[in-house]
Design a protein around this nucleic acid. Sequence first.
RNA 1: AGCGAGGUAGGGUAGCUAGGAGUACCCGCCGGGCUCAUAACCCGGAGACCGGUGGUUCAAAUCCACCCCUCGCUACCA
Length: 544
Amino acid sequence: MGRRIIVTSALPYINGMPHLGNLVGSILPADLYSRYLKMAGIEHIFICGSDQHGTPIELSAIRNNIGPEKFADMMHARTKRALEEMECDFTYYGKTHTEENKKAVYKLFEALDRNGYICSEEAVQAYCNFDKRFVPDRMIEGRCPYCAGTHARGDQCDDCGKLLDPQEIINPKCSICGKNEIEFRSTTNLALDLPKLSDGIVGFVDRIKGNISKNALNKTTSFVELGLKPRQITRDLKWGFTVPKKGFEDKVFYVWFDAVIGYIGITNEWSAKESEAYWMGSDTELVQFMGKDNIEFHTVIWPGILIGARQGYALPARIMVYEYLNSGKMKFSKSRGNGLNIENALEVMGAEQWRFVLSYLMPETSDTELSEDLIFEIVNKIMNDKIGNLINRAIVISSRNKTLLVGESVSTEIGNKLRTVLDGYVRNFENVKMRESLRCVVELADLGNEIMSAKMPWELAKCNDAEGFSAVMNDVLHICKYVGVMLWPYAPKAGSMILQNFGIKIEPQFGMLEDSLGFIPNNEPVQLFSKIGDKERDALMGFR
RNA sequence: AGCGAGGUAGGGUAGCUAGGAGUACCCGCCGGGCUCAUAACCCGGAGACCGGUGGUUCAAAUCCACCCCUCGCUACCA
């Protein structure tokens, strides 16, 4: 029985375009892993999509004078396009506001309700009499009762930093309409009864222990140990899926609830039949990628939903959590709205370059720094000078001296070395250490460059030493072919371009490395990537 | 404030789970080599009181305690 894997990336919330932080922290690693599975011939699907509900999107739609569905679909289309330009190769990139997802949400909700895991909670919530709607705490503005500053919001005072209760605010105003027609009303919402699910969740956490990062495990453990509390799953809003329960029909499901269930709903939309085979399969491994802001949802709440519903869906087998990419000067995931998002990042340089840089710095174990200088270093020195130049010099010299190139076997020494490095590469991917795998590719490029310098094939060519020349260049060309395959997940176009020199025109598989070399002389120089310079630097500076 | 993660040569990292001479990688710097190649490549070298203090130990970057600094989560903004 083979492995069958569902790879998911946290669904980007599309109130704004995803940032480079969103990309590096979940979508890109998921894409790399999925591409690895493809090369290894392991059956899998890669599911992601746009998270479309929630107050921020509803408010943005109001600001843009269009309906929330229209706005969400527009943002979805833009996001999808940008992610595709980033060469993210999803099996299916869907969205949460679909009939299929609604069905999935209802199915799980009704099962949870039937099984007694839904309770209700009453709370006081700000209501704007002008807008005729409940208003999130964050949207209440007024004077701070402690410091008397005027920048107090319903959750916290931006002047003194003190955490506030919205009812404490003096002269509260609704920041949607700007009027002070706020009153506080009591409202009852449904909640997921996590305390009742506690045993199941603890058991789940215990099982997944070895397949989750240290940060995530510690956070999860402390979250559970502090005592689980019911988590509300409905809101007094209009934008979202209406709640199919008597007395709650005027409410919608809270956005996070239909977002996590979106993994299933989106797969259903892709293919109902395949979806069932994957999600209900006993040999299915669910591998989920996300940023560290998403931990509890995936390690506690989402498994809680699946366990409580008892529908037979696969629970996560592995949860990969990424830290943050920081930048002292440039803005990434930190500030919303005006940072470097994937759309304008692509205006600065190409997808392959971003994928390479972000993979090279992937924040797997700790927050990682990204600066303009580092971007330059990686693109110019590593991608171009090491990898690009090796491929070019090897192919140019081999093609120019093709009459001297006899046989196509690799030496025992290099053959062994290649196998060792490839083993390490595969092992790193199996352990989901994509940054390390990329270092394996760079290591091979270094090896190729070292051999060229040490053996000086250009001298051998001058003496017409076909045997000597072939011995060196066949080794180097083998290295190039391995580089092509191993680079492919990170930079698919460049990887494919390398492999075309070996007659490979389809997506690579590891098995192709067992075939004969198949080098095709090519008198054109090979320009895999290009360097970046002042133009790109200026463009990057523009996002400071 | 609580919880979590981190602080390792000028910059960016790995090493810490199962202690063994500061061990490694990339960039930068210095010196040399090469000229097939994208002014690229190769070799050698300098450069670190492993955040601080104390402890355990024959031995600590690694384990323990306390302290300092950075970041994140604790918000009805997934």
